[in-house]
Amino acid sequence: MTYKLILNGKTLKGETTTEAVDAATAEKVFKQYANDNGVDGEWTYDDATKAFTVTE
């Protein structure tokens, strides 16, 4: 299944996707991606759209 990450960081904005077996796996991938790019903020998840959002 495809999951999307929407980044609303102070220095990094954009979107990326990942293929994962479930939302928990996608969340781990996205949190590592955000951490690697220096984005740390409030996380939300919308199951209807399979989209995670992180806002700094």
Rank of each mutant, 00 (worst) to 15 (best):
G9N: 05
L5D: 03
T18V: 14
I6Q: 04
W43H: 00
K28V: 10
D47V: 10
N35Q: 15
E42H: 12
K31F: 06
E19F: 15
E19G: 05
T25S: 13
A26F: 00
Y3W: 07
E56V: 09
T17M: 09
F30D: 00
T18L: 13
A48W: 08
T16D: 03
T55L: 06
Q32Y: 05
T2R: 09
Y45D: 01
E19Y: 15
K31D: 01
T18Q: 05
K50F: 08
Y33D: 01
D36S: 10
A20Y: 02
L7Q: 02
Y45K: 01
M1I: 14
V54T: 02
T55I: 09
T44R: 08
N8I: 14
G38Y: 06
I6K: 06
T18C: 15
G41E: 01
N8L: 12
V29H: 12
G14N: 08
T44I: 09
T53I: 07
A48Y: 11
N37D: 02
V54D: 00
T11P: 04
Q32P: 02
D47I: 09
K31G: 03
Y45W: 04
D47Q: 10
D47C: 07
K13E: 06
K10E: 09
A20G: 04
T25G: 08
F30Y: 01
E15Q: 09
Y33C: 04
W43R: 00
N35F: 15
D36V: 09
V39Y: 07
Y33N: 02
F52C: 02
T17H: 10
V54G: 00
E56N: 05
V54M: 05
N8G: 04
E15V: 13
K31L: 09
I6A: 03
A48S: 12
W43V: 02
K4V: 11
L12D: 05
D36A: 12
L5P: 03
E27V: 06
T55C: 07
T44H: 11
T16N: 05
N8K: 11
L5Q: 01
T11S: 11
Y3V: 02
N8W: 11
K50Y: 09
V39R: 02
E27C: 10
A23I: 11
K50A: 06
L5I: 03
K10N: 12
N8P: 04
K28L: 13
E27L: 15
G38F: 07
A24M: 11
N8R: 11
N8F: 10
T11N: 13
D46F: 03
E27N: 05
V29C: 09
Y3T: 02
G38T: 04
D40L: 12
K28A: 13
T18D: 02
N37G: 04
Y3I: 02
T17C: 10
A24C: 11
A48G: 09
L7T: 04
T49Q: 12
D22I: 03
K13M: 08
T17V: 08
A26C: 02
E56M: 07
T2Y: 07
A24E: 11
N35T: 14
A34M: 07
A48T: 12
D36L: 12
F52L: 01
T44L: 07
T55Y: 08
E15I: 12
A24W: 10
G41M: 03
T53D: 02
V39E: 02
E15G: 06
E42L: 13
E15N: 06
E15R: 05
K10M: 13
G38A: 06
A34Y: 03
M1Q: 14
G14P: 05
N35L: 15
V54F: 05
T2M: 11
T53K: 05
K31Y: 05
T18I: 15
K10T: 12
E19V: 15
L12P: 04
G14Q: 12
F30V: 01
T11V: 12
T53H: 05
A23E: 07
K50H: 13
A24Q: 12
N35S: 14
K28Y: 08
I6E: 04
K13V: 10
F52R: 00
L5H: 01
L12C: 11
N35R: 15
E19P: 05
